[in-house]
């Protein structure tokens, strides 16, 4: 699975510009799908199985977009000012590297800060593409880039700039591959534009009109030195979302997940996240409402170029998903 993860996290695909990552995912899922479609917003939707008598129509969502930047202005010396696509913090930008969709690369520098104890704003940062004037610069206003940082395998832990949410993508792909038999009709949605307001899942959920929804995404942790108080940590199993900043998970879905984890003797943790949200929010509010929840992968340093997850948590997430999807839903 690690080589799949590496391939996924090292493919570019900022919000709204998911074409490269979509093609990589399409190649991975095609052999296992009953039907592969791309919807009007660009989400990749894989249908699998027919609903048996006791089966449901279940939408599974992992977003394939990643946070990135967009050029707002290139000055006469070739320096590019930029804005954010999704939750990019200036804190993690300085000295970072970006790669544009056209292959151009650059590094992020900063205006001189009068007060070095203060953090620059995004407006005070720029991308240096190594050009000496605007004519040599390979980018112009509107060009889009993602952060550049190689995948690192630390053994029991893995690090990448795009674990959010390519790790969810990898878990869905792996579950699709390993799934032998399901009473459900499943829609594996690799959604677009999650980082700019769960927009891809909103449209996909409307189109699919599922009975039940489950997102697979990362969540924050409280297990680093002097961290915020949060009862989720790396290596303690997949997290079952009770709530986040944007939704309250359906209590029936939470129970379903807890029981499945216990039945399969898998470690799990209950997640109460105080900020942020996932595709599950969009699914829950679709049409006349859909019971929805989220299987979360604990992740350190979310939205930084070095997002860290635990390999065991990832494997147990696949196992939990398989347990959930292989049996009828009892509520």
């Amino acid at each position: 699975m690690k080589s799949l993860i590496q391939k996924l996290v090292e493919t570019i695909g900022p919000s709204g510009y998911e074409a490269p990552i979509r093609e990589v995912i399409r190649a991975e899922v095609a052999p296992y799908a009953d039907l592969v479609q791309v919807d009007a917003l660009g989400s990749l939707i894989v249908r699998k199985g027919k609903s048996a008598k006791n089966g449901r129509k279940i939408m599974l969502a992992a977003h394939m977009d990643e946070i990135g930047v967009v050029v707002t202005h290139v000055d006469e010396n070739g320096f590019a000012r930029f804005s954010n696509l999704g939750g990019v913090s200036p804190r993690t930008c300085y000295g970072g590297r970006v790669r544009f969709l056209n292959g151009a690369q650059g590094v992020i520098g900063s205006d001189r800060m009068e007060d070095l104890t203060k953090m620059p704003t995004l407006e005070q940062l720029f991308i240096d593409l190594g050009a000496s004037n605007s004519k040599d610069t390979r980018v112009r206003t509107g060009d889009v880039a993602a952060f550049e940082r190689p995948f690192v395998d630390l053994g029991s832990r893995m690090v990448s700039k795009a674990m959010d949410d390519r790790i969810g993508v990898a878990i869905l792909i792996e579950a699709l591959r390993q799934l032998k038999d399901t009473p459900h009709q499943l829609f594996f949605v690799f959604s677009v534009q999650e980082e700019v307001g769960v927009r891809g899942a909103t449209a996909a959920a409307y189109g699919i009109d599922p009975d039940l929804g489950l997102a697979v995404d990362v969540t924050g942790v409280g297990d680093t030195p002097k961290a915020r108080k949060m009862d989720v940590g790396l290596g303690k199993g997949p997290a079952i979302k009770v709530r986040d900043g944007g939704m309250l998970a359906d209590p029936r879905v939470v129970d379903w997940m807890v029981k499945a984890a216990e039945k399969a003797h898998l470690p799990y943790q209950m997640e109460v996240l105080e900020g942020g949200s996932t595709d599950a929010r969009a699914i829950q509010l679709t049409r006349a409402g859909v019971p929805a929840g989220c299987l979360s992968v604990p992740c350190r340093y979310v939205h930084s170029p070095s997002e860290m997850v635990d390999t065991g948590d990832v494997q147990n997430s696949v196992r939990l998903l398989l347990e959930l999807l292989s049996h009828p839903v009892e509520f």
Partner: peptide, 16 residues
Amino acid sequence: VQEEVTLGGAFTSTYQ
């Protein structure tokens, strides 16, 4: 339901 967090009940019941 859920007015205090997402207006979720209002969105979905009105749609239905």
